[in-house]
């Protein structure tokens, strides 16, 4: 489905064309729902929070200043709404010099992954994301999947930009570890 720019629909909605908002929903619902699901890990709750997010965004649309992307603004709403639901603190900040011991070869892992076909790689990465914590899976979704900048992720999560960078650095290592583990264990059993 081809969509116009977000601003196109926003202008229409602000000019009393309420139906134009359904295009904005269709354009962003998967990502909004994915963010809610990454945090809540429950389909019903994620659905409810994602719906609340779009209603809140609609009610506040006239306050959207267009200083950031509409998606960033929307993701911040769903992030805050989902975090409120879990009654958890926001993603905790971490020490900037907190390093993880590296005990794997990235090149070997890459070579092993390249040997898999597209569908196998898809299964692998879905499994890896499923094994990550809520915070880590959210960060890699925002950064690697949705290609948000670290500045935008900082805006969405309320973390400092340097903390986002450090956490992404750690998540990346964790991804390699999980890929290696899955390749060496369960994945070999399914795809020897």
């Amino acid at each position: 489905m081809n969509f116009e720019s977000d601003n196109f629909y926003i202008e229409k909605v602000l000019n009393n064309d309420v139906s134009a908002y359904s295009s904005l929903i269709d354009k962003h619902k998967e990502m909004v729902y994915t963010i809610a699901f990454r945090i809540l890990r429950n389909r019903e709750d994620a659905e409810e929070i994602a719906q609340d997010t779009f209603i809140k965004a609609y009610q506040s649309l006239s306050k959207f200043r267009k200083e950031s992307k509409f998606s960033t603004w929307l993701y911040r709403i769903v992030y805050n709404t989902a975090i409120s639901r879990t009654r958890k603190k926001k993603i905790q900040t971490i020490e900037l010099n907190d390093e993880i011991e590296k005990n794997f070869s990235e090149d070997e892992i890459r070579d092993d992954v390249f040997k898999l076909d597209f569908d196998e790689q898809k299964i692998l990465i879905n499994k890896v994301i499923g094994k990550l914590s809520e915070e880590d899976s959210l960060l890699i979704t925002l950064y690697y999947f949705e290609e948000n900048t670290t500045e935008e992720i900082a805006e969405i999560t309320g973390l400092s930009q340097s903390n986002v960078k450090v956490r992404l650095h750690r998540v990346r290592k964790r991804l390699y570890e999980e890929i290696q583990e899955i390749l060496n264990n369960e994945f070999k059993e399914v795809y020897p």
């Binding site: 998967e30 994915t34 898809k122 990465i125 890699i140 999947f145």
Partner: peptide
């Protein structure tokens, strides 16, 4: 990661 699935509402 871009080969992963998004969740579907």
């Amino acid at each position: 990661v871009q080969k992963s699935d998004t969740e579907q509402p």
